[in-house]
């Protein structure tokens, strides 16, 4: 069983709360396949000590992930990554995408793009993604 402690890093001086940074990192690691179903997240104490971060912050992140069904607390093992394929995006992930999209749209409007221009940019972006 691997030790995944070194996969995490936080920037305390970012405007994003540390627990959210950790949640996003776990979701990213799962999406990229570096964390797979059955893998164990580092314990709260272990990760808190390595990152020098308040332990409650870590347990909050893990609790949110558990509430979203991403991990499950297994007795004697800790937080275990669940199979996530095919589950579709969570409302939270959708919200994140929406926020990023909103920012892009605002930027476009600031640059003077029309509705049609924006749609063209969006289509091009999706095409290049190979969806």
């Amino acid at each position: 069983m691997g030790d995944f402690t070194t996969l995490f890093s936080v920037n305390p001086s970012s405007g994003v709360p540390i627990y959210r940074q950790l949640i996003e990192q776990v979701l990213g690691l799962i999406a990229s396949g570096r964390l797979r179903a059955g893998d164990e997240l580092p314990s709260v104490r272990q990760l808190g000590a390595v990152l020098s971060v308040n332990f409650m912050t870590i347990s909050k992140a893990w609790a949110r992930l558990e509430a979203d069904g991403v991990v499950l607390h297994e007795r004697g093992r800790g937080m275990v990554v669940q199979a996530v394929g095919g589950a579709g995006p969570t409302p939270q992930q959708l919200r994140q995408v929406r926020e990023l999209m909103d920012q892009a749209v605002v930027r476009g409007v600031q640059c003077g793009l029309s509705r049609a221009d924006l749609k063209a940019v969006f289509r091009a972006s999706v095409e290049e993604c190979g969806l």
Binding site: S13, S14, G15, V16, E99, Q103, V106, R107, V109, Q110
Partner: peptide
């Protein structure tokens, strides 16, 4: 209006 939201760190 169009609104762009910026996160702030503790110093901000």
């Amino acid at each position: 209006v169009e609104v762009l939201v910026e996160d702030l760190n503790l110093e901000d």
